[in-house]
Amino acid sequence: MPLTEVSETAVLAVPVARVWEVIDATDRYAEWVVGVLEVTDHHGAATVGRTYSERNRTVGPLTTRSTWTVERIDPPRRRVDTGTGFAPMHDMTNVFELEPVQVDGGEGTRFTYTVRYRPGLGPVGRLIDRLQRPGLRRSFQASMRNLEDLIVAEGPAETA
């Protein structure tokens, strides 16, 4: 079964350093990633080789429990994690990529949110996969907007 890749990009009107600070926190995904209901276990700032766990919404009221392992960190540009717990999808990889850009004369971030996975269940799985991709894209866009709102709402670092 070939790998599926779903990737979305958004330009956020907040600096890369702040975006990195939030995505680096393994306890904060429920605050901005659509579908993460709660982080059930975490290790604070992401560390290669360590894990964090979530409870995720799947379909309707159904939920699943997932565990992610931090595989690679290239601060403040790229982060790669692998996840389990999303059957029938396997070999799940999540990639966050950040690039500094100018937004209205201020610091901004081009954020690329990518997930790769291998759908299970043969032809049925491929059909389900095709059906779910538009929803995944929407949720990635919504997550990135959530992240932007969160950072705007928290205000500049000096107000902390």
Binding site: R28, N146, L150, V152, A153, E154, T159, A160
Partner: peptide, 21 residues
């Protein structure tokens, strides 16, 4: 700061995104 962000996002759900600032 996290709490402020979460509260203002809740306000924004009611009053719109201007509530974030």
């Amino acid at each position: 700061r996290h709490r402020r962000g979460a509260v203002l996002r809740a306000f924004a759900q009611v009053a719109g995104r201007r509530a974030l600032r």
